[in-house]
Design a protein around this nucleic acid. Structure first.
Length: 333
DNA sequence: TATCCGTGGTC
DNA sequence: TGACCAAGGAT
């Protein structure tokens, strides 16, 4: 039996039952693939269901406001994915593209996602090279190159595209994903129950624990903020973040300063309004991929009725990322 | 090419 | 607990 046949056989028996699996609508497949970028299946499922229920087709998504689309993304992370979906839906009119190059041209869609859609929706012979495929194939063929490099991804893509010829690529791709999730794990893979033992060069040379080689340097910066719960009556001030990290999200005002008194000065400079410290709430820490925020949260009182970006208690409408949502929950709870 | 972009789970 | 990872892509 070939590697492909063994993989498909394993898949037929062990495949996961997922809401975005074995569906034909390229729109829904697209939405699921965007959500699944760097995001676990467990996290995606409820978001996917809610999103599709509210935006069942291209036209409904295109006609929605970006603020509402963001709201359905709240807590999922990488918020620009929602922006890209909305933009693409507006460009698409009502038909989803069918060619690889046209799908790849969509903002937010790269080689992985374009290949996955071609495979899952149209059963075309494209390998979908994600983290799973990189791991499985680099072990299978003992590729001792850094998978964080584009060159290595290209090498593995070429191998995968050969593997898919003559088979249903959807079964190969999804088979690899479920197999990578259940057997060919990132750490301590279950080689003793692997159907590809005899074909796996890594296993045969005892390199399954060192492959894939994944070297990426991440320098993580720490930032220390005074974060303000600025209240007037029972309303809390939120500001739309204009750029960078958490762009377009609504945040509590915060400054990279040492004391609440410096916060008051900075706030006065920005908005021309005097604050009064009421209390120290709590210190929070939030870890991002490239950054860690230490937030010393104080409650301030002010008359902020005069400023037009004061957003009142509209938390049901505004998209507030987890980093600050958990502060608000603590404050309100 | 290197860096940025979120969050939650795991050990 | 910090480091790593999860169906990556844009700049």
């Amino acid at each position: 039996m070939s590697i492909q046949e063994k993989l498909i056989k394993w898949y037929e028996v062990n495949k996961r039952d997922l809401p975005f699996r074995d569906i034909k609508d390229p729109y829904k497949i697209w939405v699921s693939e965007i959500m699944l970028q760097q995001t676990t299946v467990t996290a995606v499922i409820p978001y996917y269901k809610r999103f599709i229920e509210r935006f069942p087709d291209i036209e409904t998504l295109a006609n929605a406001t970006i603020e509402e689309v963001y709201k359905y993304w709240e807590g999922l992370g990488y918020y620009r994915r929602a922006l890209h979906l909305h933009k693409s839906a507006n460009l698409m009119k009502d038909t989803f593209p069918k060619e690889y190059k046209d799908i790849l041209a969509l903002i937010g869609v790269g080689p992985y996602t374009a290949s996955a859609i071609m495979s899952f929706a149209y059963h075309k012979p494209y390998i979908a090279v994600d983290g799973n495929a990189l791991r499985v194939l680099s072990r299978l063929y003992a590729i001792e190159e850094n998978i964080a490099l584009n060159k290595t991804v290209k090498t593995i893509t070429d191998i995968g595209n050969q593997l898919v010829i003559g088979y249903d690529s959807a079964k190969i791709n999804q088979g690899i994903m479920d197999f990578a999730n259940a057997v060919c794990l990132p750490v301590h893979p279950h080689c003793n129950e692997c159907p590809l033992q005899k074909e796996c060069t890594a296993y045969l040379t005892n390199k399954q624990d060192v492959l894939p080689i994944n070297i990426k340097k991440v320098n993580k910066k720490s930032l220390s903020y005074i974060t303000g719960i600025v209240v007037y009556d029972d309303e809390v001030m939120l500001i739309k973040n204009k750029n960078g990290l958490l762009e377009n999200m609504y945040l509590l005002p915060q400054y990279e300063v040492e004391s609440p008194y410096s916060f008051i000065e900075a706030f006065k400079e920005d908005y021309g309004i005097d604050l009064e410290v009421l209390s120290h709430l709590k210190d929070f820490k939030h870890v991002f991929t490239h950054r860690t925020w230490y937030m010393h949260v104080y409650v301030f009182k002010a008359d902020i009725r005069s400023i037009d970006f004061y957003t009142k208690n509209k938390q049901e409408e505004l998209t507030i990322p987890t980093a600050h949502k958990k502060i608000l929950k603590h404050y309100e709870g």
